[in-house]
């Protein structure tokens, strides 16, 4: 069984937002809504300041509360790679999944269903990379299978220090940020 994950090198990310534009173009995300975004985290005051720039999206958690809470069976874990997806035709728009996500990664599509990053599963299934990864000009985004020890993502996580977002929320996020 594959376990898809994303590794993002915060030392290379410049916050150019190409990933954001690529996602909107690929997935035709409605105006004013985003499946991915850029976060700028800063600690300290100038001139003594640390800054981390990172591209964020649904963390496709291993313990996804958005799937557990869905009363309609619309939120589900895809059979390939543990990707968390939404069956649009099953969603009632109750918004429980939005409340359940500690990352606020979901939103309501103007058509009424819960929407979020899909890891571009339609591309991945045909052997392509997610749109955001494929366009990154800084080459700071990596996508692959954590179950395969030879994959680029597995090797990066073995060789570099990293963190994930809000691990204390207990959702086991599958996006890792190299530091």
């Amino acid at each position: 069984m594959a376990r898809f994950a994303m590794v993002i090198d915060t030392k290379k990310c410049v916050g150019c937002m190409d990933c954001v534009v690529a996602c909107k173009t690929e997935n035709q995300t409605p105006e004013g809504l985003n499946r991915d975004w850029i976060a700028y985290e800063s600690i300290g005051k100038l001139p003594d300041i640390q800054m981390e720039i990172r591209s964020e999206r649904c963390n496709h958690c291993d313990n996804p509360p958005c799937v557990d809470c869905c009363p309609c069976g619309a939120s589900h874990v895809h059979e390939l790679g543990g990707v968390v997806l939404v069956y649009q035709n099953k969603c009632s728009g109750c918004k429980a999944c939005i409340a359940a996500c500690p990352y606020n990664a979901r939103f309501i599509n103007p058509e009424g269903y819960a929407d979020k990053c899909t890891f571009c599963i339609h591309r991945v299934e045909t052997g392509l990379l997610p749109a955001c990864v494929s366009v990154c000009p800084a080459h700071c985004m990596y996508f692959g299978d954590l179950e395969n020890p030879e994959s680029e993502v597995s090797r990066l996580l073995l060789s570099r220090k990293y963190h994930s977002l809000l691990p204390e929320a207990g959702t086991k996020p599958q996006i890792f940020y190299l530091v």
Partner: peptide
């Protein structure tokens, strides 16, 4: 000072 700025502004979710 520890701050987080994000470029997302999704309806019903942000701020």
């Amino acid at each position: 000072m520890h701050e987080l700025d994000i470029t997302r502004n999704n309806h019903l979710v942000d701020p």
